[in-house]
Design a protein around this nucleic acid. Sequence first.
DNA 1: GTGAAAGCGCTAACAC
DNA 2: GTGTTAGCGCTTTCAC
Lengths: 330, 330
Amino acid sequence: MQERVTMADVARAAGVSSATVSYVLSGKRAVAPQTRAAVESAIAELGFTVNTAARSLRTGRSSLVALIVPDIANPFFAQLAATLQEELRGMGIHVVVCNTRARRDEERALLAEAVQQRFTGVVITPFRLLPRDMETLTAAGIPAVVSADVPFGPVDLVTPDARTATRRALERVTAAQRRRIAMIAGPRDATGGDPRLELLRSLAGQFGTALPRELVIRGEHTREAGAAGFARLMDRRYRPDAVFCANDVIAIGAMDKARELGIDIPGEVALVGHDDAAFASLVHPQLTTIRYPADSVGRAAARLLRERLDGRPVHRTVHVEAEFVARDSA
Amino acid sequence: MQERVTMADVARAAGVSSATVSYVLSGKRAVAPQTRAAVESAIAELGFTVNTAARSLRTGRSSLVALIVPDIANPFFAQLAATLQEELRGMGIHVVVCNTRARRDEERALLAEAVQQRFTGVVITPFRLLPRDMETLTAAGIPAVVSADVPFGPVDLVTPDARTATRRALERVTAAQRRRIAMIAGPRDATGGDPRLELLRSLAGQFGTALPRELVIRGEHTREAGAAGFARLMDRRYRPDAVFCANDVIAIGAMDKARELGIDIPGEVALVGHDDAAFASLVHPQLTTIRYPADSVGRAAARLLRERLDGRPVHRTVHVEAEFVARDSA
DNA sequence: GTGAAAGCGCTAACAC
DNA sequence: GTGTTAGCGCTTTCAC
């Protein structure tokens, strides 16, 4: 049962006060080189590490960052968690994973908890949350980074720029003479509607086509919803020959249903996903998709958080370029 | 900027001492019903929540559980994280994700950190760690739950029982007259060798076959290693007609290579994975695999941890039944 | 059944 | 450039 080494122990060993040890660690005031050296060697000798509980109690800030996402088991968010954790580790910050299951009540509860526990920061992909729900966080002075397709309250934002990639996707689809474009989008009550849908709609005109209302299906970001959505689309009199999906999980569900119905992809219907989740290249046919790079998003989020903790006062937005990945399904 | 409500505030509002508030919360000593009621309503009224930093400083225990795994982006571990988080949330415990990237130095560093930070518990899937590396944890009195195929030091264990499932897999493979069985296993220096390999080997005899040394390939748990391993197996004079893989990621790599080499699966070679990762049913042909249920593992780990925190002194092992999932690749 | 008070280890204001 | 010290909010011992 090793005893904990405290700053007082280090101070004694180095022949200084514990305040000096603290200042050596934080760099918040000048310390004479030889004092610093003595402290540092005492720290090394004794194997001292700071007690984060004491620090948190004193400063009112924990060393935790909450990652609040709809579904941590979704490969996109799992990768985001991995990258974020990796990036923040060097600062001694731990990443706490929080699943909202796409429910607004859980999103709000988790935000409230982040405030109560005095988390040092929050990275969140809101799903049904409203921008004003973020106020609790900003009021408490907790830096927040939102990873979302559209701006979301007065916080830092990591947002993909998918315009070019979406245009490429439309080029590809229309080059194959497809004009009846559909989308299986996210739920109607999701925060900010579905920006991926809006983008597709706004670009479709440039390609001599449009997304008629009856060819837009709304549903959850699940495989089941993808299958159901695809089935409904195939029932339309005006049957689509290209289907975009709000994410890859939905696209997989659509593929399930296509197989069940004996509909050839991409022969009869082209299919385009979003995210480039890890499994996108595993399905057959391989999924053509618009890639949102989870690792770049994670790195950007970590950087914004670091800057914020270093005192940057204004909010920043980082754009991450999405990428069209042409595989076999379109 | 909402001010924090402390126990002292609650105590004042309820007309008691802060000690009483503490005891109402912890239940560690009897409190008169009416006192308790007064305290509880004051808590509700003021919206009090305990300051975990202060509690941690005082008790020497944080409210964090570390989940230490080789790769959080692996769907199996992502699901484990999701379940664990869900299960522990009710206790006010947060799950911190820690990626070791299958490296022993990182595994050790993370364990050391769990001790330093006085984590309340650790759930770990060791990869290259040695059982004695766990001693730091046990010496510090930190409850640990290991999720692994074999016992691992004096800690609680969640372990799959894959005997029946593996037997089923062998039945299926040998019923198709396959006798030249191979395995792409984990690395030779992994902790405890590769129990999935040992199990397969020990059962093979019952099916009139064996795993000759030259048909066992060792490598990392990656897609690339799976592809490389499969290529090597196909180069053998004694070419296998059934290949087991230590996990599904490896199996996917093997499939990549089979496609590249124009080898039909399952026609020429049957392929069996382990885990039933989320993508197993997505690949073509769909992967036949031995399912290790991540959610059951997560629930069991949470339960063991809870029991331990409630004071159970002895170590327990929970067996989780693996399941043979027959799909198309074998 | 309840209260008073010490003290966990750190940070930062203040003093020199 | 360095030291002294108060106090963050809680738990728990001791006293009644």
